[in-house]
């Protein structure tokens, strides 16, 4: 991270719009991805995440809007950019009936690698992603976690500067998920920028910056911490034997935005300007005994739920 190139952006998206007939899948989307960052792209199912990625990879033409990657216009100059971007789709679009080694060779060749260069690239990818032992296996025989690593290897055969990952970790266990993120960190250290879509808010927290989109529109955009601060809330978790009564009482207090059960405790959302101690004192006054944790920032889950609820109210 850091370095003198900070200011320049790798990918700049401006007013990107895609309509399918009457349906607007993506509407006036603008954001940028900076060098050597992991940029998280979040949103509920059907929010337009995959559509956006497909447009940015040149698989789908936008209805209107502009996008520049690595100094080239993505839509008019696509051929120049393709050699320098990579894409891994939701479905791990490897060829099932080819072996891992054949898949890597195939995609490497499509990116213009040949002979020794191709062999070196395959060996390097296999080493980095620990897939050497799978080389002779048919892709159809691999587990989801293995497919995911082979997919990442295939889509980075040509060492792209900008990598698009569409829900790369859906359907894999937490351990594999963590290994995958470590692999992504290695790629970033190597100078790559990554745009990744995910449903997992734990993963979103690990991103350098985030964009929340809903119904094709940008709802929130920035560093995870800044987004949480911008929500203007504090969260206090309290544990108590009488957690149900506590929840009921807390919900009645005018300063409490929401009170949710969490195991044998309650999670209270308060406006940032409210005094948590005053709220807690009030609850103690009701004869409820509990031990509070110190107030903290809301989680991305809180933000996600708030955005979804806000958009429902509007609708």
């Amino acid at each position: 991270m850091g370095g003198p190139v900070m200011a320049e952006s790798i990918l700049e998206v401006e007013n990107l719009t895609k309509r399918f007939g009457d349906f607007t899948a993506v509407k006036d989307l603008s954001f940028e991805v900076r060098p050597e960052e992991i940029f998280g792209f979040l949103g509920p199912n059907g929010a337009g995440k995959s559509t956006t990625i497909k447009m940015l990879c040149g698989v789908l033409m936008p209805t209107s809007g502009k996008a520049q990657a690595l100094g080239h216009d993505l839509f008019t100059d696509a051929e120049k950019v393709r050699q320098r971007i990579g894409y891994m789709s939701q479905k791990f679009s490897l060829l099932d009936d080819l072996t891992v080694g054949e898949n890597l060779a195939y995609f490497g060749q499509l990116y213009g690698l040949e002979g020794e260069k191709l062999k070196d690239a395959i060996a390097q990818r296999e080493r980095e992603l620990q897939i050497k032992p799978l080389e002779q296996l048919l892709v159809a025989k691999l587990s989801t976690g293995e497919k995911q690593r082979v997919s990442l290897a295939a889509s980075t055969m040509h060492r792209p500067r900008m990598l698009f990952l569409d829900e790369p970790t859906s359907g894999v266990d937490p351990l594999r998920r963590r290994l995958f993120w470590e692999a992504m960190d290695d790629l970033v250290l190597d100078g790559m920028s990554i745009l990744v879509t995910t449903h997992n808010l734990g993963e979103a927290d690990q991103c350098d910056r985030l964009a929340f989109i809903m119904a094709g529109q940008l709802m929130a955009y920035g560093r995870p911490r800044a987004l949480k601060e911008d929500m203007g809330r504090r969260v206090v978790e309290v544990r108590s034997e009488r957690f149900r009564e506590l929840q009921r009482e807390a919900a009645l207090h005018p300063d409490v935005i929401s009170a949710e059960l969490m195991g044998r405790g309650v999670r209270l959302s308060l406006p940032a300007q409210a005094n948590p101690e005053a709220v807690l004192a009030h609850l103690r006054g009701q004869g409820l005994a509990f031990e509070p944790k110190s107030p903290e920032l809301p989680s991305l889950e809180d933000l996600f739920i708030k955005l979804v609820q806000d958009s429902r109210k509007e609708a």
Partner: peptide
């Protein structure tokens, strides 16, 4: 299978 998408993002014309 969606394998065409993966090829369309490469420099293949």
């Amino acid at each position: 299978r969606g394998t065409l998408d993966q090829v369309m993002v490469t420099p293949v014309r």
